[in-house]
């Protein structure tokens, strides 16, 4: 069990269907102990379902799911003793104070009474919630709620942690704070699997990333490996409008194969960016098409997703799902939905 090569988390051929929806269509992934693994995909890709299988909340239809070598379907109780889960919907009790929430979790983890009290205080302090600890949660901001939810997942010191979209709906400042907290958390060797719709989040936090779409992993590797699939650089030529971009596609593709339209831009993976840029500009000039802008840059995970799936990772997001800068916390929305 202490063999250093055994994965801390493993899914092998896991499927799960809800009625007509094949939420997981054979997911394979392995997370090495002490690493951060990012499960990246658009809304509805199956990320949450994968986490719910691994955290014993639902049973898979088929396949093998293990945490620390323990099968989640045959040893759910032992798995639960080893995992922490913090969710998109801040699963904490609105009516209780921060301290009462943490103590409740401690009691439900069967900690000795003195430890329940001590651990709650310690976590409040560590998550900068001491002052707010005796206020009911309904007075908390979205960022505070997420921090408390995260604290609640750590009460029993789980060696394996699952975070479902930890910063969805947070403002950039709270997001950055939470990222810092998460980095601190994993510095001591906790294994972390996090799901996210944000390419930047996976890039910032994860050692390895799996891109998931329609219930299956379509690529995995380090951020650098995924980007390398794109070629060394990305060349992006912007035009006045979408129509111009479409009319320019053929010309660009003639010089830089693999070019694709993305909004008002045409984008192509290229190995020798500077040189190819000259060729592209010359060809466009020859065709009499005006260029509004030109960029040569490192490929982003967005490029990877577009290449793998033919669409942008965030294009089919739920329109209600807040963008990065939207200050409205989803936690509030979920909580209101649940409490009249």
């Amino acid at each position: 069990m202490s063999g250093s090569t055994a994965p801390a988390i493993e899914l092998a051929g896991v499927t799960k269907r809800f009625g007509d929806v094949q939420a997981l269509a054979g997911v394979d992934l392995q997370v090495e102990p002490g690493t951060v693994y990012g499960l990246l995909g658009p809304n509805g890709a199956g990320k949450t379902t994968a986490v719910r299988v691994l955290t014993t909340i639902i049973r898979p239809d088929a396949g093998r799911a293990e945490v620390l070598g323990l099968d989640v379907t045959t040893h759910p109780e032992r798995v639960r003793a080893s995992i922490g889960l913090a969710g998109q919907y801040a699963a904490v009790d609105e009516q209780l104070t921060g301290r009462e929430n943490l103590r409740l979790v401690g009691q439900l983890c069967h900690q000795p009474r003195a430890e329940v009290v001590r651990r709650a205080d310690e976590l409040l302090e560590r998550f900068s919630l001491t002052d707010a600890g005796d206020r009911p949660l309904k007075t908390f901001s979205g960022g505070m709620r997420r921090r408390l939810d995260l604290a609640a997942s750590l009460v029993h010191r789980p060696p394996v942690l699952f975070l479902v979209e930890p910063t969805t709906g947070l403002d950039p400042r709270s997001r950055q704070d939470l990222w810092d907290l998460i980095r601190e958390l994993v510095a001591d060797g906790t294994t972390l699997l996090l799901t996210t719709q944000y390419l930047e989040e996976a890039d910032q936090l994860a050692d390895r990333i799996a891109v998931i779409d329609h219930g299956a992993v379509i690529a995995d590797g380090t951020a650098a490996e995924l980007k390398a699939q794109m070629g060394a650089t990305v060349l992006e030529v912007a035009f006045a409008d979408v129509a111009t971009a479409h009319s320019a596609l053929e010309t660009v593709a003639g010089v830089a194969p693999g070019a694709e339209v993305d909004g008002i831009a045409v984008r192509a993976p290229v190995d020798d960016g500077a040189r190819r840029a000259m060729d592209v500009l010359r060809a466009l000039d020859g065709a009499g098409i005006d260029v509004a802008g030109l960029t040569i840059r490192e490929p982003s995970l967005d490029d990877v997703f577009l290449k793998l799936t033919g669409r942008r990772a965030e294009e089919d997001l739920d329109p209600d799902a807040p963008a990065v800068a939207d200050p409205r916390p989803t936690a509030d929305v979920a909580a209101q939905g649940g409490s009249r």
């Binding site: 719910r52 955290t55 909340i57 003793a81 919907y89 801040a90 699963a91 439900l108 983890c109 649940g338």
Partner: peptide, 21 residues
Amino acid sequence: AEDMGSGIIERFRSLPMVRLS
């Protein structure tokens, strides 16, 4: 019903508690 909708039951289900509780 409120608990089921609020996500707190998901947390309870992931804890090493006795579920029937």
